[in-house]
Design a binder for these strands. Structure first.
Length: 257
DNA sequence: ATGTCGCCTCATAGGCGA
């Protein structure tokens, strides 16, 4: 099973990029974030052989799961805050695997209401991820976590020390998710290797100089970690005209034994 | 502070979020 995740920064602006990437890579499951549109063009992906489920809102956020096989949606809201209406979460079951697509809050600037929302959101995610482990179902939580886990996950820590994605509070919470028993799929197969990023700013030729950050992640339960074959970042789409500022990450799993 | 995108609107310029 091949699972990919890509923050597309507007599904309308990136439609051709996404369609051609799917045609080329044929993932079994694709998680999309930052749709930035009320309507998700499900029909266009149906033509490519993909079922889809999406949670959307006007202008902001939005996540979608695409799959070549049936998607059973479990929930479109993260527990713990009835008043939270952001489209940032979609939990589904595909091929006996719990697939959770997240677009975690950015949280900038630090010491703002947005930053507090980010931390609270991560605390809510922690509780769910803890509960999922106890169900015994193989679980993958993927998407844009908006957290730079370690110093090697950015080109230069001093450039990010004032950014919400690099603050101790979210980083501690990310590590706590690993502490529950989840594995950072990419890092587990590429230990101690810096210079691997999933996001580069549009400005200052950040991509050309590889001044980026690794903030798109797959956190996988132990049974899935045992099935993990590869996890790579595909920089290809970031090189195209009018790219998203993120690029896809792709994980491959052995079939369940 | 700035850079650059994509969205929206008290819309063709400016604000917001990233």
């Amino acid at each position: 099973m091949i699972v990919a995740s890509w923050n597309v920064n507007s599904i309308r602006a990136r439609l051709e990029h996404v369609k051609s990437w799917i045609a080329m890579h044929q993932p079994d499951v694709l998680l999309l974030q930052e749709l930035k549109a009320t309507e998700f063009p499900a029909g266009l992906f149906e033509e490519l052989g993909y079922e889809s489920a999406a949670v959307t809102q006007k202008s902001y956020n939005g996540v979608a799961v695409l799959s070549r096989t049936r998607i059973d949606v479990v929930s479109s809201t993260l527990l713990g805050d009835e008043a939270d209406s952001h489209a940032r979460f979609l939990e589904a079951v595909v091929n006996d695997v719990r697939i959770v697509n997240i677009y975690a809050p950015n949280g900038n600037p630090p010491a703002s209401d947005k930053f507090l929302y980010k931390l609270a959101w991560m605390d809510r995610l922690h509780l769910q991820m803890q509960a999922w482990l106890k169900t015994g179902m193989a679980t993958l939580v993927g998407g844009d976590f908006n957290v730079i886990p370690e110093d090697i996950d950015c080109h230069k820590p001093s450039s990010w020390m004032h950014d919400a994605l690099f603050q101790p509070e979210p980083r501690i919470r990310y590590r706590a998710l690993l502490g529950l028993g989840y594995t950072d799929a990419f890092r587990s197969l590429h230990p101690d290797q810096g210079g691997y990023f999933t996001f580069w700013d549009y400005f200052r030729k950040a991509f050309e100089y590889n001044r980026g950050i690794r903030i798109d992640h797959f956190l996988i339960s132990p049974d899935l970690a045992a099935r993990l074959e590869s996890c790579e970042i595909d920089k290809g789409p970031r090189m195209l005209e009018k790219p998203s500022d993120h690029t896809p990450i792709v994980a491959r799993f052995r079939d369940a034994g």
